[in-house]
């Protein structure tokens, strides 16, 4: 029964473009656009949760890695005319390399000092994006980033030009992130991550090198964020410095902490709610931000551990009956 409903859910998510076309034909483009953003944000939030939720390091540097990937892809696709899959891979690697390099000194800091250090990195990255005009074009933005063309050298190619096509591409990326997230956060790797998160000195006594596991989660999280950055710029076809400001960190914090830190379901629910909700609220433009703020407060007050804990309590109550 649970399998059947899970299958139905997946079918619905995959068929969303057709459902949208049938349900709201006049707003189809807009709704699909929101859905694409939601899917990309879900992937980005999961990559962030690997760090904050599973090794318990409150990094505020995620926009920097998203930005490194986004700019790497944007520059390689426009100036060097690299094919999509190649610049996507380069974006992932560039973000990972930067994270590994800055991670070593950053993880010498603990807790709040680490958070402040990573915030510093995010600010520096944002300043570089604005001022290193030769490379990033600064506030003029990198424009004309081509639509992604899937395919390997010599083989057949598939250009992703339509909104549904792009939705499915984003969905495939999210599926890959979910798969990797589950592999990393369960079994032996997950246990080692959680040991470091819950009690670092004791993790040492268990033979776990806390720095190594923290750095691993940080680097993989950054690599995935870089990949999402690449997908993002190929979708929008422009990359501007504003895309990687601290506002992005705030969004991610809201999604992860109000959704359910350290939980796949919680983060996914958080991404859907807090990306789609502000859009849905456009129906009441004057009150939009007030209602959004009120809802945030409501979640914080009623369920400080996130929506995931509400869901768990609800399913627990049902099972208990």
């Amino acid at each position: 029964m649970r399998r059947a409903s899970a299958l139905a859910f997946v079918v619905m998510v995959v068929a969303a473009p057709w459902l949208v076309a049938a349900a709201v034909p006049r707003q189809q483009r807009y709704v699909l656009h929101v859905l694409i953003f939601t899917v990309l944000f879900a992937a980005l939030a999961l990559s962030y949760d690997l760090v904050v939720g599973h090794v318990g390091s409150l990094s505020l540097a995620h926009p920097a890695f998203f930005g490194v990937g986004a700019y790497a892809a944007a520059i390689l696709a426009t100036r060097a005319r690299w094919p999509f899959l190649a610049d996507l891979l380069a974006a992932v690697l560039a973000a990972a390399v930067v994270a590994a390099l800055v991670g070593v000194p950053l993880f010498r800091l603990t807790e709040h000092a680490f958070a402040v250090g990573t915030l510093g990195l995010a600010l520096v990255a944002s300043i570089v994006a604005n001022n290193w005009v030769e490379v990033t074009r600064g506030p003029l933005c990198i424009t004309g980033i081509p639509k992604p063309v899937l395919g390997l050298p010599g083989g057949p190619t598939l250009a992703v030009t339509t909104l549904p096509g792009y939705y499915w591409l984003a969905l495939a990326a999210l599926a890959a992130v979910v798969l990797l997230y589950r592999r990393l956060t369960t079994f032996r790797l997950g246990r080692a991550f959680h040991a470091v998160r819950d009690n670092e000195p004791l993790a040492g006594a268990a033979g776990i090198d806390p720095l190594k596991y923290r750095l691993l989660a940080f680097t993989i999280g950054a690599a995935l964020a870089g990949g999402v950055g690449a997908l993002y710029v190929h979708y929008l076809s422009v990359m501007c410095p504003e895309e990687m400001t601290v506002a992005l960190t705030v969004n991610l914090l809201v999604i992860v902490f109000l959704g359910g830190v350290g939980s796949l379901r919680g983060v996914l629910v958080g991404a859907v709610l807090f990306t789609a909700l502000p859009e849905v609220l456009r129906l009441a433009p004057t009150w939009r931000l007030v209602i959004y703020g009120g809802l945030l407060l409501l979640v914080v007050v009623r369920s400080p551990e996130g929506i995931e804990s509400l869901l768990r309590r609800a399913s627990g109550a049902r099972a208990g009956r």
Binding site: R191, N199, A206, L216
Partner: peptide, 26 residues
Amino acid sequence: FPRLSALENLLVFLQQHQEEHTLARL
């Protein structure tokens, strides 16, 4: 480790001694 189960608390103390192929564990 408060959020791990009692069983997992024990498992995590042996795994690093049995093998330590960090990413190969994927």
